[in-house]
Design a protein around this nucleic acid. Structure first.
Lengths: 368, 368
DNA sequence: TTTTTGAGTGTTAACGTTCACGGCGTGAAT
DNA sequence: ATTCACGCCGTGAACGTTAACACTCAAAAA
């Protein structure tokens, strides 16, 4: 340890980075810095010379050093504008966990995130919170595209104020060049079609169950159903007469089991695609028909779905990786702001298929 | 931009980090540094006082600043000891792509990786390359546990020389506390069992195809078969008589189609599980039996398998995410060496299921 | 002619961490 | 009494980047 003299200190390494560029271009580091940041105050000839050296040496700036310097003065501020988190295991809580993990990693690089929660039923609340964000110079905002008109306004104002917008979990055809982190719902529906068709086969019937909140269907669920139907249209069009849809309001008095009864026949297999995260409710209702040959596919690894998967009551779950979405949103924004040549944030979350047997490899592990 | 005076420069922020600790403990930053690095030369009372302050303030060192300083003197050197890469699309090439991506990200933090390739058929070559690594002070080595005896020796010597070892793609029961990045082959086989059973059902027959290189079965393939069989043992033991194994040497003169023929009967469905990355070969052979009801599952998203998946000749692919494995190996080593409290590297790659419909979400996307 | 401007430069002090070096003391050896 | 050793601690120069500030000339304004 102490026996070997420290050779590195005897022959100092030749400087790399901006200092080396300055030496080669016969200017000071100040000038190189001005060129790199496109600041004025550099003669055209000097600028060209410096740029040539930068080109030739393939210089890239040391982001570690840059962020170390900037962390104290020019922080990167990201606003998170998401629906109020009611249940402790809600989808947005998971997204937020991912966001917080990213924030922790980026903290010492001068990145801060601030949360703003809005009431999904009140567009005015969304607008109000956005105005707070807009007037508080954030570089970026991560939000959801639920409230169509309010979001359109947000996009326009964000463009004017140079605030980067990233949508989580969006499906709405996005105006302009908005960024997003989402899973393709249409394709996810197609995957569910493939999986249930494989299990149920030609002799069976099929049912799409949309569980409605406030009597209206979510856009995600709608697109998933379209994808599901498109699979059959392309691969087994003769089965379309056997493919039905059940829209069932969650806040109804009717029991789900009762509504399902006409579809469940002991003599023929039934494939049920639940377009939302509540497949476990359908699984519960199906316990009234113990001798039916029913196969169930749905979304999201919440605790109830996991339990049903383990018991064999749900056969396939499609995972949306909410934590990963949140994590990726923040990380991508950072990368985009820091490496200027980095592409805009457009991430398609893979459509991951969970069955009973690969569940452990998903829940016993870090998700990032 | 220039209109607002820079307030941050007028009221300087109170220092954070080591300086603040020093101020509170009424010592210099040198002493704090000595305490943080457990170096001698600090009075016991002073050390206790500093440690108390560190505890109270919840100080954590700024790794950005630390690496900036250390990058020039104490680089983190990682050796990669993997089989020679023959084919351009080989599995190890993909792993190496992931490694290189991680290396690029960590370059400015003073991390360097060096590659050593060995001939998988020559344990002596493996040993020779390892000796080169051992004598060249690397902090860590990423390798594969193929050659049992040579690897045991490596592990012992690495422990003595404080070289961290991380195995890629391992299944061998690992001696001691070795680290790994792998997919659980047994569980992957079980997943394949679930998927094929779902498609083929009770009336079908099942076949495990092990494609042998040099007449011997790879340990991965063996464990996958065990997992596959265990699924049927648990879920459909009555089908075990209908479950056969075919070990087929790749360098034989016999045609695969000929060997498969006795198993393929037009009247009954057949589920084939190929335990390696060459399911496309079985798919090719099956083209001789166009009217058979055959279902095929295998591993890895190589180009031939992808083509078969798109054509519907292969029904399920299990993805091992080789690029992600390589990336994770290097990143995890870095995190472990840099955050001393970080856990040892033990990563289970999730068993990801690919069908025709979710393939696009896997191949049109960054894997990290 | 002298002063003033300002465009084009160089200089320097940070950001938080690291570590060699040197400078105090106190106690032991000469 | 003078030297030497050594435990304990502070100082300062880096790492590469940033940006305010200071300086130097020219040409334009007085």
């Amino acid at each position: 340890m102490g026996l070997i003299p420290n050779l590195l200190h005897m022959n100092p390494r030749k400087p790399s980075g901006i200092k080396e560029i300055a030496r080669l271009a016969k200017v000071s580091i100040g000038t190189v810095d001005r060129v790199l940041h496109n600041r004025k105050g550099v003669a055209a000839s000097t600028r060209a010379r410096v740029l040539r050296i930068i080109e030739q040496t393939g210089y890239t700036k040391n982001i570690t050093a840059s962020r170390l310097k900037l962390a104290s003065t020019h922080r990167i501020r990201i606003a998170i504008l998401i629906p109020e988190i009611s249940e402790p295991w809600s989808y947005w809580r998971l997204q937020q966990n991912g966001i917080e993990k990213a924030a922790a990693e980026l903290k010492e690089l001068g990145v801060t995130v601030a949360y703003f929660y809005f009431d999904v039923n009140k567009p005015a609340d969304f607008r109000k919170k956005w105005q707070k964000i807009r007037t508080a110079d954030f570089q970026a905002v991560v939000t959801v595209p639920f409230l169509k008109k309010a979001v359109t306004q947000l996009l326009e104002e964000a463009e004017v104020h140079h605030v980067q917008v990233v949508f989580l979990d969006t499906e709405r055809p996005l105006l302009g060049k908005a960024c997003f982190i989402r899973q393709n719902s249409y394709d996810a529906g197609r995957v569910a079609g493939r999986l249930l068709y494989g299990l149920v086969g030609e002799q069976g019937h099929y049912l799409v169950v949309n569980l409605l909140r406030d009597a209206k269907i979510q856009i995600n669920c709608q697109q998933r159903e379209e994808g599901f139907r498109s699979f059959f249209k392309e691969n087994a069009p003769h089965l379309l007469p056997q493919l039905h849809t059940l829209n069932h309001p969650l806040n109804t008095d009717e029991l789900l089991a009762g509504v399902l009864e006409p579809f469940v026949k002991p003599e023929r297999p039934l494939g049920i695609f639940v377009s939302s995260a509540r497949a476990f409710m359908v699984a519960g209702a199906l316990r009234h028909f113990p001798h039916s040959k029913t196969f169930l596919a749905g979304f999201d690894l919440n605790q109830q779905n996991i339990a049903c998967l383990k018991k064999g009551e749900i056969h396939f779950i499609i995972h949306q990786k909410p934590e990963y979405q949140g994590y990726t949103a923040v990380k991508s924004i950072y990368n985009h702001l820091v490496h200027e040549e980095a592409p805009a944030v457009k991430v398609d979350i893979p459509i991951e298929i969970i069955v009973k047997e690969n569940l452990p490899s998903y829940i016993h592990r870090e998700w990032a």
